[in-house]
Structures are given as structure tokens and as C-alpha cells.
């Protein structure tokens, strides 16, 4: 006949409950403080709302084309370049951003700049005609007949 032991009693049980309870409360107070500090420093840490606003005119101006081209002026291959493209992709979805500038089938291209530049000249180099400077560094281009 096997003996089953399923309960813990006495001081050990009380100690287990008391220690776990007390330490969990300590952890909660500490984590809450940590969160309070972190959140007071950063409101909307990734500024996604701002990105969405910047690109808000693009869907209507591109006829809601399912795929549009995209390039930005951040350092090629950098994390910043990738982050800018990723946040722009979220803002513009369900339009899919094409980053490959060899794609001749893409009519509209969006330039994402973080400083004022010669937008028309940059487009021309890539065979793109400037359609509109939408402000806040967002520029819409259309593939020119020459490219």
C-alpha cells in the first residue's frame, strides 16, 4: 500500500506563504517605481503617432496603390535607416513599401528625409519626378518616363 502525502502543515507552510507574499509585494513596489520612472521620461517613446501623421496624405495621393516605393536619407545599412523604414511601413500599411529601387513596376515613391534637401535633384538622380513636398520631410515622387 502506497502512502500519499499531499499537504504541508505547521511553521513550514506558514513560512512559505509569508515569505512568498512579502517578497512578491516588495517586487511589485519596486517594479511599479521602476515603471513610474521610465514612463515619466518618455511619453509615446517611438513617436508612432507622429510618423502616422507625417505620412497621412500618401494613401490618397497614390490612389491607395497596394505597393509603393520608399527610400530615406539615413545612413545606409544603419539601425536608424531600418527603424525609419519599419515605422513608415506601419504608418502606410496596408500599402506595402518596396525598398528595392530596381523595381521598375513601382510608380509612386515616397522620400523620407530628416533635413531639408534638394528633393527634386535627389529624385532626378533616381529617375523620379517630384510630385509634392508634403512637409515634415515627406516627399512624393513618380517614376519619370525616362527611367
Amino acid at each position: 500500500m502506497s502512502t500519499q502525502t499531499t499537504t504541508a502543515t505547521g511553521a513550514r507552510a506558514i513560512a512559505a506563504v509569508a515569505i512568498v507574499s512579502a517578497l512578491a509585494v516588495v517586487a511589485s513596489i519596486e517594479y511599479y517605481g521602476l515603471f513610474e520612472k521610465l514612463t515619466s521620461k518618455s511619453g509615446d517613446a517611438y513617436r508612432i503617432r507622429n510618423v502616422v501623421e507625417r505620412f497621412a496624405q500618401i494613401p490618397d495621393r497614390t490612389g491607395r496603390a497596394p505597393r509603393i516605393g520608399y527610400f530615406n536619407d539615413r545612413t545606409p545599412g544603419s539601425v536608424v535607416q531600418q527603424s525609419a523604414a519599419t515605422s513608415a511601413q506601419f504608418a502606410l500599411a496596408p500599402q506595402i513599401l518596396i525598398l528595392d529601387d530596381n523595381r521598375k513596376d513601382i510608380e509612386f515613391w515616397v522620400g523620407d528625409f530628416n533635413a531639408p534637401r534638394d528633393f527634386a535633384g535627389i529624385g532626378k538622380v533616381q529617375g523620379l519626378d517630384l510630385v509634392a513636398d508634403l512637409g515634415q520631410g515627406v516627399v512624393l515622387y513618380r517614376r519619370g518616363a525616362g527611367k
Binding site: Q4, T5, T6, T7, A8, T9, G10, A13, I14, V17
Partner: peptide, 9 residues
């Protein structure tokens, strides 16, 4: 084991 007030089962 479950904490219990009764004598150990």
C-alpha cells in the same frame, strides 16, 4: 504539497 492547517495528511 498544499499548505494546510490540519495535521499532515
Amino acid at each position: 504539497k498544499s499548505p494546510d492547517s490540519a495535521p499532515a495528511t
